[in-house]
Structures are given as C-alpha cells and as structure tokens.
C-alpha cells in the first residue's frame, strides 16, 4: 500500500485540523498556567503565605526526596569517575581530569538535571495527583464556597516548597555525587583525596555554582507551575487524574530538557559560567 493511499486528502485535512486543535489547546494551557503562576507570585509578594503549610510542603518535597536524590547522584558520581578514569588511563596512561570533569559536569548540568528528573517524577506527580483528586471530588469548589482562594491555599505553599527545597537538593546531589566519584577514584587509581578535590574546585568560581543554582530555580519553577496547573485543571474522574499526572510529569521533563539548552546559552552569554 503506497503512502498516497494511506493519507488521502481527507485524512490529511483531518490530521491538520487535529494538529491545529492540539496546538491551540497547548497555547491556551500555557496561557492559563502563566496566569496561575503570576497569581501565585502575586500572593507570595503580598505575604499571603501559610508558614505551617509551606514548612509541611518543604518537608514533603525536600526531606522525603533526599534518599532517592542521594542514591541516584552517588551512583551517577561513581559511574562518571569510573568512565573518565578508564578513558583517560587508556588515552594518557594515567587517570587525569577526573575531579575537574566531575565537578563541572555535576555542578553545571548533572546535579540540577538529576534532581529535576527525580523531583518531577516524585513531587510533580504527587502534587498533580493530589490537586487533581481535590478538583474531581469538588474539594476545590468547596474551598471557593468557604471563602478561600485555591491558588493561595494550595499553589503558594507548593511553589515555595519546590523553589526553596530544589536548590538545596541540587547542592546535596552535587556533594554526594562528588563523594561517589571520590570513593571510586581513590580506590581504583593512585589519586589522593586532596588531589581529587583540588582538581575539582581549582577551576571553579562562584559563577559556576550560580550557574547550577539558577538552573535549579528555573527547573523548580517549571515543575511547580506544570504540576499545580495540571492538577487544578484535571477533569474526568479517576481516569482524568491519571492522565493529568502522566501529562504533568511528561510536560515537566520535556520543558526541563529543552529549556536546559536555552538556559545554558543565556547564562553563558551573560558570563555566568
């Protein structure tokens, strides 16, 4: 069967209409998500913050994500050290640049990205599922009838929890990743811990750390906006909540990975590198 037969003119037209519909839905979704983010920051700047709710969210998002962030970054640190050490030994007959390569790759890229992937999967999914369930069981409507703005009551503490804990988790991921790399390096090759650490830090400046933390802030923002938006706009019962949760994680990951390049480009062009 030829391609022409498969895609008749009518099918092409239908496909194009479907594409336009999806595009307009996504643009509309982006508009709604942006307006929710602006409203959330409006509440934050007006000081409408529930300390107890925010602390609860910080514990849920930060403390409870710590074990998986630690395990993943430790493992990634060990793998990078092993790969770099083996490659440089093959090329130069000695394991060089391990600390430097690990330091830059973790602080600039892998620390924020690993944390983002874990937080999007663990925290983003939990936020969307919780808010989505509240939406389909009319608890969000109940908040309105009880004189409470859902964005102020639900989104603000989750935004703050995410934005405050994400950079901290990234810093911990960096330290634990470096520790993993250090353990592999000193046990596999004749490299002292002092040598490894001085290699790691010598070429870095405060800007290098800023680079990673600015990315961490933006990734946290993406996860919080997408998760709250998808949750507060879920519909269609349990199935709708499931779809919203999947869509939240997927959209967060896609936005994080695609925005990473543009963020890096912007930061490098501003000299934050």
């Amino acid at each position: 069967m030829s391609l022409d037969e498969v895609f008749t003119a009518a099918q092409e037209k239908r496909l194009f209409k479907h594409f336009l519909k999806k595009l307009s839905e996504n643009i509309e979704g982006l508009g709604i998500a942006s307006s929710m983010a602006i409203e959330t920051f409006g509440w934050i700047f007006r000081g409408a913050i529930s300390i107890s709710n925010t602390v609860y969210q910080m514990v849920e998002m930060g403390w409870r994500s710590l074990p998986i962030v630690a395990l993943t970054s430790f493992s990634v640190g060990m793998v990078i050290a092993l790969q770099v050490g083996t490659a440089t030994t093959n090329m130069f007959n000695e394991p060089i640049f391990i600390g430097m390569i690990m330091g830059f790759s973790l602080v600039l890229e892998l620390g924020p990205i690993i944390t983002a992937v874990i937080v999007a999967g663990r925290v983003g999914a939990a936020i969307t599922a919780e808010l989505g369930t509240m939406k389909v069981t009319e608890q969000i409507d109940a908040l309105y009838t009880l004189g409470t703005n859902p964005v102020k009551y639900l989104a603000v503490p989750r935004f703050l929890g995410c934005i405050l804990m994400f950079p901290l988790l990234t810093a911990i991921a960096n330290v634990i990743g470096m520790t993993g790399g250090l353990l592999v390096t000193i046990n596999s090759w004749d490299v002292t811990p002092e040598q490894f650490l001085s290699d790691s830090i010598d070429l870095m400046s405060m800007k290098t750390f800023f680079h990673g933390f600015i990315k961490a802030f933006f990734f946290a923002l993406i996860i919080a906006v997408v998760a709250c938006h998808k949750g507060l706009n879920a519909s269609g019962g349990a199935e709708g909540v499931g779809k919203a949760t999947t869509s939240s994680v997927m959209m967060s990951l896609v936005l994080i990975i695609t925005s990473d390049y543009f963020l890096t480009l912007a930061l490098v062009s501003f000299g934050i590198k």
Binding site: M134, T137, E138, Q139, D141, A142, Y144, L146, G147, T148
Partner: peptide
C-alpha cells in the same frame, strides 16, 4: 458568598484535614 453555604454531592470534605479542621475551616475564613 458569606451568606451562602454549599453542601456538595459527595460531601467534598478536605481529605488532608481532620473533621475538626474541616468544620473550623469556614469559621476561620
């Protein structure tokens, strides 16, 4: 809206709060 109350079909009590906190919610706001 302060003059109006709404009882939802499935009750719509807040899952994460106790019954005390649910009943006190409107009073506080």
């Amino acid at each position: 809206q302060k003059k109006m109350g709404y009882v939802f079909q499935e009750a719509a009590l807040f899952d994460s709060l106790t019954i005390y906190e649910n009943v006190a919610f409107g009073l506080k706001n």
